[in-house]
Design a protein around this nucleic acid. Sequence first.
DNA 1: CTCATATTGTTGCAAGTGTAACAATATCTT
DNA 2: AAGATATTGTTACACTTGCAACAATATGAG
Lengths: 149, 149
Amino acid sequence: MLCEKTEFALEDFMPYRLNRAAEAVSLAFARIYKEKYGLSRPEWRAFAIVGQFGTVTATEISAKSTMDRTKVSRAVFSLEDQGWLKRSQDVKDRRVENLELTPQGRKKFETLTKLAQLFEEEIVAVLGRKNMSDLQNGLIAIEKEFLQE
Amino acid sequence: MLCEKTEFALEDFMPYRLNRAAEAVSLAFARIYKEKYGLSRPEWRAFAIVGQFGTVTATEISAKSTMDRTKVSRAVFSLEDQGWLKRSQDVKDRRVENLELTPQGRKKFETLTKLAQLFEEEIVAVLGRKNMSDLQNGLIAIEKEFLQE
DNA sequence: CTCATATTGTTGCAAGTGTAACAATATCTT
DNA sequence: AAGATATTGTTACACTTGCAACAATATGAG
């Protein structure tokens, strides 16, 4: 029976490694939407959710993008100011505001998603399809286990 | 030849998925060192690096933990205030301060690394050894490709 | 040896963030 | 129907962050 030496190394610690990879990828993609389109990360996420779902409320954006309500609120303001998104009060529940992209917003969204897909393909090119889908599954399992548990 | 519909879904977008998983895991582990030991994430990272390498400079911590110099500076102050770490001016280069754990810091470090290892095992239990190492490799490949490229 | 340049660690400041409080509205209980 | 409770989106405030500037020191060029 062996007595294993248990020396700790931060760089091999999974939470740290995950964070580094996530940060690296996020920053790389952020360079695209930030420098070229002036969007912050919260703005990009909110933008993506509205573009994807057509008409949503702030609360829905919050849930689907795992962002704080206040973050969403500010992102929505900014996107509205920039003319990508418009809001309209819900008639059935007047607390709620329905959000959707403006025509220009829709066009910008098409461009952004194209960029996102190119970026995704870049990752596939690095990893290969098989590893990519293994990675996805691993991430899903991890998220499921540790999300607000 | 098929014309593929290219609908974008944020939740399937790799950068977003990576971030969610990383955040979930980090928060789960943070609950341990934060609530029980009052450490912030930068503090935990700096702590781990000093504990692992024995004697290091702030610049080295910065490099090994991928944290901004100012973040390290503030984390080191805090760890020093809490008595886990002490600094001493380098004799050969007086700009430099050598940092190392105090005896109490060393003890705390042993406790923290034990917790980290337990946490790591929890992840292994979720994923299985094989998937775990596949995941690690995927993350390494991604980081290599996208880090400050 | 001297002056220009680089490096180390800290700090000022502006921007971003989360928690808690809030007003407006909706829903539930009786 | 009335009052208590919950939900939506915004805002105030305190805290964290990164960039740029900084003083102190070291290194390099001539």
